[in-house]
């Protein structure tokens, strides 16, 4: 464990807490894409298959349980909770996210570290996570006024993977093992997808104006 990875995990945890806070306290999911939340639930479900069979550390197991629990409960809130679901604008959240899953699965079957079920699932979860934010970014461009919590949520979600890239660089220079290039590339693509959001987020913060993404 290094400071970059810890910062990444804490940023990721914080993004999830900000979202849960928004949904649980003000009982609203306005501006949040259910499709992205569903994709993230699938990302964690396919990545943490070995949560009970492959013990890494208490921290690792607890964080996996938090990410699994929070992502599925957010999906539950947005689908089932009688108040929260009313604030979900489904006619705006129209990204065909299932169409994202098939190319990721096919790519995982072709490009992976080891052709085993678990390894293919893990690779699938990496590719899927790289594109999981797309429905949310599309929704942000459609909903004009982005509220602060939603903007912070997306910002933190993007920032965590950027910290992971620093972690991979650090590990490359300090450990005899190396992190596989599949992880590097999908992490890089994921972070680059946030580039324009980061730009507008920084502009809105610098000029102290409401965050707006060009349509």
């Amino acid at each position: 464990m290094n400071i970059f990875r810890l910062a990444g995990d804490m940023t990721h945890l914080f993004s999830v807490l900000v979202l849960l806070l928004k949904i649980h306290t003000i009982k609203s999911c306005a501006g949040i894409s259910l499709k992205t939340q569903e994709l993230y639930a699938i990302v964690f479900a396919t990545r943490y298959l070995d949560i009970f069979t492959n013990y890494i550390s208490l921290y690792n197991t607890i964080m996996k349980l938090i990410f699994l629990g929070s992502s599925f409960s957010i999906v539950w809130y947005m689908r089932r909770h009688k108040i929260v679901r009313r604030s979900y604008d489904k006619d705006q959240d129209t990204f065909r996210h299932y169409f994202l899953m098939l190319p990721c699965l096919i790519l995982a079957l072709i490009i992976n570290e080891k052709f085993t079920f678990r390894e293919v699932m893990w690779t699938f979860s990496l590719y899927l996570e790289a594109v999981a934010i797309l429905p949310q970014l599309v929704l942000l461009q459609r909903t004009r006024n982005i509220d602060n919590l939603t903007g912070q949520y997306v910002f933190l979600l993007g920032a965590y993977r950027a910290f992971y890239i620093l972690n991979w660089i650090y590990r490359y220079f300090t450990e005899e093992h190396f992190v596989h290039w599949i992880t590097w590339i999908s992490g890089l693509v994921q972070t680059l997808l946030y580039a324009d959001f980061f730009y507008y987020y920084f502009q809105s913060w610098k000029n102290n104006v409401k965050l707006e993404l060009p349509a």
Partner: peptide, 10 residues
């Protein structure tokens, strides 16, 4: 450098 034994990251 050799391959990591397992996925130790989240």
């Amino acid at each position: 450098k050799e391959q990591p034994l397992e996925h130790d990251e989240l």
